[in-house]
Amino acid sequence: MTVDTDAARRRIIDLFMSQEKPLLERWARLSGMPGDELRDLHQALRDALGSEQRDLTDVRGLLAEVSRARARQGYTPTETARAVFSLKEAVYELIEADGQAEALRGFVWFSRLIDDLGLYTFETYTAAREKIILDQAEQLLELSTPVVKLWEGIVAVPLVGTLDSARTQVVMEKLLETLVDTGSEHAVIDITGVPAVDTQVAQHLLKTVVAARLMGAECVISGIRPQIAHTIVTLGIEFGDIVTKASLADALAYALRRSGVEVANTAGTRIAVRAERV
């Protein structure tokens, strides 16, 4: 028996077009979605099915907006997809009431079309979530690598946690931007909060120092604890002519002296700072 697929599809489309009010009412009860969203989706589907090309671009665009909006409202992608899939049940009820064999045969085609649209909501949700995660990761990187001004002409980068390639790139960019904005000639890279220094971490530090030097800034690495010093020697890591200090205070004092600022302990814990006039 030969099945006229075109006739079957046309009958489905005719039912979809002619039974707008009962279809929307049933779809609303089954899906739980607002009537405005359903009317927009229904109209977009009507336009797509009524055209020769049956282009679903506008339908997908509306579904993407609905999916993102429902995600912000706390709906899961499964709930949104089920709301779309419920249109099949509403259409099937129209087919049963119609009682024509062509409509029943065309339901397979219509069901696949709605399945594709429902799965598209999953894709939209996943893409949106991935973008949010990437944006949050970039924000965390920026927050975890602050560049602070310690003194006129002196900035510091306190590093905490593991230093990898992505974070090194952020450190270099923020450091170079700050050097340009502040006109600083001295930078202190403090690794007190870095748990361990291996060859890879050392290479990242050297890249940062070289980048700062290209901007005309002298770098000091502080936070060289005994354990880190032992590791550096064991691994044979060479910092060359880069100045290293045990603490941030020592590095700041060094940078101040290099800047022409005299630091003197005048009485107990009181520190007098005087800028030498050149």
Rank of each mutant, 00 (worst) to 15 (best):
R105K: 11
T80F: 06
A48E: 00
T145S: 14
A44I: 04
F107C: 03
L119G: 03
Y92E: 01
L41W: 14
L143E: 07
L94Y: 08
G99N: 03
F122H: 02
L119M: 12
Q43V: 03
K88C: 13
Q73W: 09
T121W: 05
G74C: 09
P146I: 11
S144Q: 09
A81W: 07
V59R: 04
R112W: 11
S144R: 12
E89A: 03
D47R: 09
D55L: 15
P146C: 03
Y75D: 06
E138G: 11
Q139R: 15
V108S: 10
L94V: 01
G61T: 12
A71G: 04
D55H: 02
L38R: 08
L117W: 05
D47H: 07
D115G: 08
L134G: 00
V66G: 02
E138L: 15
Q43R: 08
L143T: 04
E123R: 13
S144H: 01
V108G: 01
V108L: 05
Y125S: 13
Q100P: 00
G106L: 07
T121Q: 02
D58A: 06
G50R: 07
I95H: 09
R46A: 09
E142K: 13
Q139A: 15
E102I: 01
Y120S: 00
A64R: 04
L62K: 01
G74S: 05
D47N: 08
Y92K: 01
I114M: 08
A64C: 07
Q139D: 13
L63V: 14
Y125G: 01
H42N: 15
E123T: 12
V84Q: 00
I95W: 09
R129Y: 01
L143W: 04
A64L: 07
Q136H: 09
E89Q: 09
Q136V: 07
G61S: 11
S111G: 06
V91P: 04
E138K: 14
R60H: 13
L140G: 00
K131P: 02
R68P: 00
E130L: 00
R105D: 11
E138V: 04
D40N: 14
Y75A: 12
R112S: 13
V66Q: 03
V91H: 02
L141K: 02
P146A: 14
E96F: 12
Q139E: 15
L140W: 10
L134E: 15
A64E: 10
D40R: 14
I132A: 07
Q136A: 12
L104D: 09
D135S: 11
L63N: 11
E93K: 14
E93G: 04
W109R: 09
L49A: 09
S144W: 03
I132K: 14
D58T: 10
A81N: 05
D47C: 10
D98I: 10
A44D: 14
T76R: 05
T57N: 07
Q53E: 15
E123M: 13
Y125K: 04
